[in-house]
Design a protein around this nucleic acid. Structure first.
Lengths: 70, 70
DNA sequence: CGACTATGACAAGCACCCTTGACATATGTC
DNA sequence: GACATATGTCAAGGGTGCTTGTCATAGTCG
């Protein structure tokens, strides 16, 4: 499942550790999410979307989703 | 974590089993989600929101959210 | 009553989310 | 070279999402 965490974090000049702290998770969790190693829990996904001022649907993309290609 | 699954399902006249089948999960999963026994995974949450024509943020409410109380 | 549907709930089991702790590389500063 | 920050990755462990299987209750239909 793809996401835009890395891009949004970089736009804000945050380190993975700083983002993790702001969200109440470890830096390894942020790193794993950015690397697509696994999907966040629903509460964490909502917290992430809120933190970046966007929505869960904008931040995370289902595999069947296709993306903004067409 | 609260959600509006039961209400939306009832509005459509679906059984828990029918909804589960439409989403690719078991009826026990639907039952547990409605009963608030646990939160869905992120992919399932997105699928649910889509199925009901709403958003994850509308369908699921963080505990700190307060709700429509004031 | 007998059969079917819908719902609620529990148990065991597997996979996954997230944690802490650790090791490695790359960059920048002194 | 020594130190600090930022990132990537692995391991072990605990909590939880979802599965199949099962039992119980309530309502409807014959």
């Amino acid at each position: 499942m793809q996401n835009d965490i890395r891009r949004l974090r970089a736009e804000r000049g945050l380190s993975q550790a700083a983002l993790g702290e702001a969200l109440g998770v470890s830096r390894q969790t942020v790193n794993s999410l950015e690397g697509g190693r696994y999907d966040p829990s629903l509460p964490l996904a909502i917290s992430l979307a809120r933190y970046f001022g966007t929505t869960v649907e904008e931040l995370f993309h289902l595999p069947e989703d296709g993306g903004a290609r067409g």
